[in-house]
C-alpha cells in the first residue's frame, strides 16, 4: 500500500500525463546504524535521486513493523513494499535457498560473491515470484563461526559440546556430524544459557557476537567460516507489478548499486567488532586446514546436495 496520496496522484497522472508518485515502506529488523540499514538507506537515496523525488522509500529499522517472518508475510500480502531479510527463511518459499546454508560450501567471500553475481544468483531471486515477492539484490552478512565458553582450537574440541543452533533439521544434522550436541533455543535466551551452562557455545558472525554480548561469557572463537548466508533485499510483487517498466529498471539498478555501500559498511563493522572483542579478551583461532571439518560433514552435505543439484553445480563452477 502506498498511501492515499500515491493512489490519487496515480489517477491524476493519467489526465495530466504526469509520472506517478509513490511512498513506499522498507522494513529491516536491525538498528538504524547497522550495515544492512545503511544499505537500505543508500538504496532509498538512489531511488529518490534517480526518480527526482517521485518514489520515496521510508526505511523502518529495528523491527518496528515486525520480525522477519511477519514482515515477509506483509510483503507477500502487499501491506508493505520492501524488506531486507536474511536468505535462510526464504528456503520456506523456494527450497533451493537451502543449499546456501549447507556448511563449508563456499570457501571464501570471493567464492560467495562470484556465485551470487552469477546467473544462478539472479535465478534464485526471481524464483520467489510465485510467493508474491521478488529479490532485488544480495547484501553481505559475513560468515558464521563457532564460539564457546570452553576451549575451541580444532574440530575435535567441539565433540560433546552443547551448541545452540537455529531450529532447522540441517543445523541439527550439521552439529551431529561434528560430534556436538545441538540445542535449539530462541536467540534471546542464549546469553543466560551460556551463563548457566545450559549450552557451551553457539555460532554466529563477528558483529553479532559483539552486539549480543555473548562474548562476555564465551571467549573462545574459532574462525571456521562454516556458513556464508547472504542477506536479500526484497520487493513485494504487488508493488513491482504496479511500477512502470522504466521505474522497475531504476529500482532494480538502485538496489544493485547500493550493495557496494552495504558491503563496505559491513567490512568496517567486522573490523571494529574484531578489535573490540580482542580487547575484551576473546581469543580468535584461525583454522589453517579446513579439511577435517569438511570431511566430518561430507556425507551430510552430500545427502542434502542431491535435492539442490543445479544450485550446487553453480556453486562449484563459481569457485575462484
Amino acid at each position: 500500500a502506498c498511501g492515499k496520496e500515491a493512489t490519487t496522484s496515480t489517477k491524476d497522472g493519467g489526465t495530466k500525463a504526469e509520472e506517478p508518485k509513490y511512498t513506499f515502506r522498507l522494513a529491516d529488523n536491525q538498528p538504524p546504524d547497522y550495515p544492512t540499514v545503511i544499505g537500505d538507506k543508500k538504496f532509498a537515496e538512489l531511488v529518490d535521486e534517480r526518480t527526482k523525488g517521485r518514489i520515496k522509500i521510508e526505511v523502518f529499522p529495528s523491527a518496528q513493523l515486525g520480525d522477519e517472518k511477519s514482515v515477509l508475510e506483509q510483503v507477500q500480502l502487499g501491506a508493505i513494499e520492501f524488506t531486507r531479510i536474511n536468505s535462510s527463511p526464504l528456503a520456506e518459499f523456494n527450497d533451493q535457498f537451502t543449499a546456501l546454508g549447507l556448511p563449508y560450501v563456499f570457501e571464501s567471500e570471493e567464492h560467495l560473491w562470484n556465485f551470487l553475481n552469477g546467473e544462478m544468483g539472479t535465478k534464485l531471486l526471481d524464483g520467489l515470484e510465485q510467493s508474491k515477492m521478488k529479490g532485488l539484490a544480495y547484501y553481505d552478512s559475513g560468515s558464521r563461526s563457532f564460539y564457546s565458553t570452553k576451549p575451541l582450537k580444532g574440530v575435535k574440541d567441539l565433540k560433546g559440546q552443547k551448541i545452540r543452533v537455529q531450529q532447522s533439521k540441517i543445523n541439527i544434522d550439521f552439529m551431529e556430524a561434528l560430534g556436538a550436541s545441538a540445542t535449539p533455543m530462541p536467540y534471546g535466551e542464549v546469553f543466560s544459557a551460556l551463563q548457566t551452562g545450559i549450552i557451551d557455545g553457539a555460532e554466529n558472525n563477528i558483529p553479532s557476537l559483539d552486539s549480543s554480548n555473548h562474548y562476555q561469557e564465551a571467549k573462545n572463537f574459532i574462525l571456521d567460516h562454516h556458513q556464508r548466508i547472504p542477506e536479500v533485499l526484497l520487493i513485494s510483487k504487488a508493488a513491482w507489478d504496479k511500477l512502470s517498466e522504466k521505474d522497475q529498471k531504476i529500482v532494480k539498478q538502485a538496489a544493485l548499486d547500493s550493495v557496494q555501500a552495504q558491503r563496505e559498511e559491513w567490512d568496517k563493522w567486522e573490523e571494529r567488532s574484531t578489535k573490540k572483542l580482542k580487547e575484551a579478551g576473546v581469543t580468535f583461532t584461525e583454522v589453517d586446514d579446513i579439511t577435517p571439518w569438511k570431511d566430518a560433514v561430507k556425507s551430510m552435505v552430500d545427502k542434502y546436495s542431491k535435492d539442490y543439484k543445479e544450485v550446487m553445480d553453480a556453486i562449484e563452477k563459481a569457485r575462484p
Binding site: A1, K4, G66, S70, E73, Q74, L77, G78, P186
Partner: peptide, 21 residues
C-alpha cells in the same frame, strides 16, 4: 481500509501477536 492496505494484514498481525513462546 482508508490507507488502501490489504485487509488481511489485521488478522495476520493478530496471529503474529500470539506468536511468542
Amino acid at each position: 481500509i482508508y490507507l488502501g492496505i490489504p485487509l488481511p494484514v489485521v488478522g495476520q498481525q493478530m496471529i503474529q501477536g500470539m506468536n511468542s513462546f
